[in-house]
Computed example of a mutant assay.
Amino acid sequence: MTLTIKAVESAKPRERGYKLADGAGLYLFVTPAGNKSWRANHVRDGKQATRTYGRWPAVSLADARKAHQAVRNAPAQGAITFGDVARAWLKIKLPTLSNGKHQGQVSNTLAVFVLPTLGDRPIAGIKRAELVTVVRDVQTGGRIETAHRVASRVTEVFNYAQDEGLLEHHPAAGLTRTLASRKVRKPMACIPVHETGALLQALDGYSDPVTREGLQLLALTFTRTGELRGMRWDELREDGALWVIPPERMKLRLPHVVPLSTQAQAILATLREMTGDGPLVFDSPVRPGRALSENTFLFALYRLGYRGHMTAHGFRALASSVLNEHSGFAPDVIERQLAHKETDAVRAAYNRAQYLPQRRELMQWWADWLDSQRAAANPPSASE
């Protein structure tokens, strides 16, 4: 007796996981949480093992049968499969990624879109046309960005196989060129440099005091918005002259050191009077004990008339532009302070606090430059 689509759809979770047999060893496994995946048992290296073809509904009943039949038709030899190489590559790749969410995305794209079809195929026997079919199937329904990611990861798996001496050549080079073009992302809106002073004056007049001070501190530190919103009083060091952001709150999962200018320290002293009773510098007035909401700073810029012209993230672009073009500081010093990605993981970990004396000077230079722009936008009258 084989399964029907209706039987798969109506399978309900039970106290313990259970199997629904389809035929030829293929079965649907239903977990107590209600997740459903296609599986088959087999013997590998003399031991009982389970082969997984992917989760339902991402992998349909028909797709699972097709994948299972392909495995059964493959020669019973000890050839190294695409799945073997993919798992070995993931063990090396995943620890280098910034967070658990990204790690899950990389694993899942292979598990859902590639392994059901190619996982048990000997990697040396996979043809270019098969790879093109797999990645083009992904972009069906408009999933163009996902298809590009899948193609890139498939190519990385084959690169790894080649580097390990498992293949002399491979068919996955340039796989992304077989796909529709990605949508070009619009850069985050950022004002021209000459409008900096007017923006700062507008921020000075914003009505909500915590948001106002927060935007000014964002301009002075040019950190990512989430890093600033989550700022805690216990992250300040050296009597408030240094802010150390822990790795779990950084995009790249590495600690980041932010020297604080005298202007930034003055803002924090003002904020201390407003929110200093709790652990968060930017405690939410709506939900005490939690940080300001994600869109607080962005919506404030909208209210000031900067919709489409400036975003909270735009302060990073503004700082990068000015510092690289006008400050005279070395590019490496600027990059360290922007906490941009390093290609070398060891160097990246070391560089979080590298150039610290120069970065202290840079941050004070930047704060003084902002003050000069604010003053130039509204020079005193002759009578003053």
Rank of each mutant, 00 (worst) to 15 (best):
T2I: 12
T2L: 14
K6W: 02
A11I: 11
P13A: 15
E15H: 11
K19T: 12
L20W: 15
A24L: 14
L26H: 06
Y27R: 06
L28I: 09
G34L: 12
K36Q: 05
S37P: 10
R39E: 11
K47H: 10
Q48P: 08
R51G: 01
W56Q: 07
K66R: 14
H68T: 03
V71H: 14
R72H: 07
A74I: 06
R87W: 05
K93H: 14
L94F: 02
L94G: 06
H102E: 13
Q103L: 08
A111W: 05
L115T: 04
T117V: 15
L118F: 09
D120T: 15
R121A: 15
L131V: 02
V132C: 07
R136A: 08
D137F: 02
Q139K: 04
G142C: 06
V150A: 00
V157I: 13
F158T: 02
A161H: 07
L166T: 00
H169C: 03
A172R: 00
G174S: 01
G174L: 01
S181C: 02
K183W: 01
V184W: 02
M188L: 09
C190P: 00
I191H: 02
A198P: 00
G205N: 08
D208I: 11
E213F: 11
Q216Y: 05
L220K: 07
T225W: 10
G230D: 08
D234Q: 10
D239G: 09
W243I: 15
M250W: 07
K251E: 07
L252V: 14
R253S: 15
P255H: 05
A264K: 09
A264S: 08
L268D: 01
A269E: 13
R272D: 06
R272L: 07
D277T: 13
V281H: 04
F282K: 03
P288M: 04
G289S: 05
R290I: 03
R290E: 08
S293T: 10
N295Y: 05
L298H: 12
L298I: 02
A300Q: 12
N324I: 14
H326N: 13
P331K: 11
D332E: 15
I334A: 14
E335L: 06
A339W: 10
H340G: 06
D344E: 10
A345D: 07
V346Q: 12
R347L: 13
A348Y: 09
A349E: 10
N351K: 09
R352V: 14
Y355A: 11
Y355S: 04
P357R: 13
R359G: 02
L362C: 03
W366K: 00
D368M: 01
D368V: 01
W369P: 03
P380G: 04
